[in-house]
């Protein structure tokens, strides 16, 4: 077995203690595995829990029901059981996550934000910067903006910065949450290229794409979340 992501009987329920302990079941019994070089696309209408599942794999949301493991340094690690320190190490070296939103740190340049994942792997600044420049150029971010903080960038520009940051380190596992949501055709095509290149390098990708054309272009396989829906 070389599964990079393994999801077994995973469910998610939110309990809102501040609102009379209301429980909101989202999904149940998700079982899914992603192999290297695969791009599995999650299908289903909004609200069905696709983003929540990605966040659970990234350990941004807790997994209290079922088991999620990610292959790290050659062996599967149970994300729910792993110490915060291990999870941080997985995020640093194994698993990338590209969401629609860039959490911007004021005063840090775009180049530095994009190069940061590489630098944290011990790559020197010059090399990280060079790779960041290549990616920013491919994604159509004008060079004069590279030294600026993305605080004032448009939504589309921020998203492309986020994509560049997500793809720079060449993680073996990638989670993509609508990476092309507000991009024009040319940039969307670039993102498709990046995904195809990653697949070719053996990256295991799990993603959400609402755009049918993108979905058809990148998906190796589709997984329908509707089968796991739990009525509230």
């Amino acid at each position: 077995m070389t599964q990079m992501i393994s999801i077994e009987n995973v469910g998610k329920t939110f309990t809102l203690h501040t609102q009379g302990s209301a429980t909101i079941p989202v999904f149940d019994n998700v079982t899914l595995a992603v192999e290297p070089g695969e791009c599995v696309v999650l299908d289903g209408p909004s609200g069905i829990g696709k983003s929540s599942l990605l966040r659970m794999i990234y350990a941004n949301y807790r997994c209290l029901d079922g088991r999620i493991s990610v292959r790290h340094d050659g062996s599967p690690i149970d994300i729910a059981e792993a110490s915060p320190r291990t999870v941080l190490d997985i995020r640093r070296r194994t698993m990338g996550y590209v969401s629609q939103f860039l959490r911007v740190i004021p005063r840090v340049s775009t180049l530095s934000i994009v190069g940061e994942p590489l630098r944290s792997l011990g790559v020197d600044k010059a090399e990280a910067d060079a790779k960041a420049m290549t990616l920013l150029a491919r994604l159509g971010i004008p060079e004069p903006l590279w030294q600026l903080s993305p605080v004032t960038f448009s939504g589309g520009e921020k998203q492309r910065v986020n994509i560049a940051r997500g793809f720079i380190a060449g993680y073996p596992v990638m989670l993509l949450d609508e990476p092309t949501a507000s991009l024009d055709a040319a940039n969307t095509a670039t993102v498709i290229e990046l995904i195809q290149e990653a697949k070719a390098q053996g990256t295991a990708i799990l993603g959400i794409f609402h755009d049918t054309a993108v979905r058809n272009a990148v998906a190796t396989r589709r997984f329908d979340m509707r089968d796991c829906h739990v009525a509230a």
Partner: peptide, 30 residues
Amino acid sequence: HRMMVMRRGRVVETGLTDQVLDDPQHEYSQ
């Protein structure tokens, strides 16, 4: 990177910072 939520002298929740903030479990963290 990590966070401990305290209430009345005790730690009620602990975990990765983004996890505690984005998916808080304990009533008080929420």
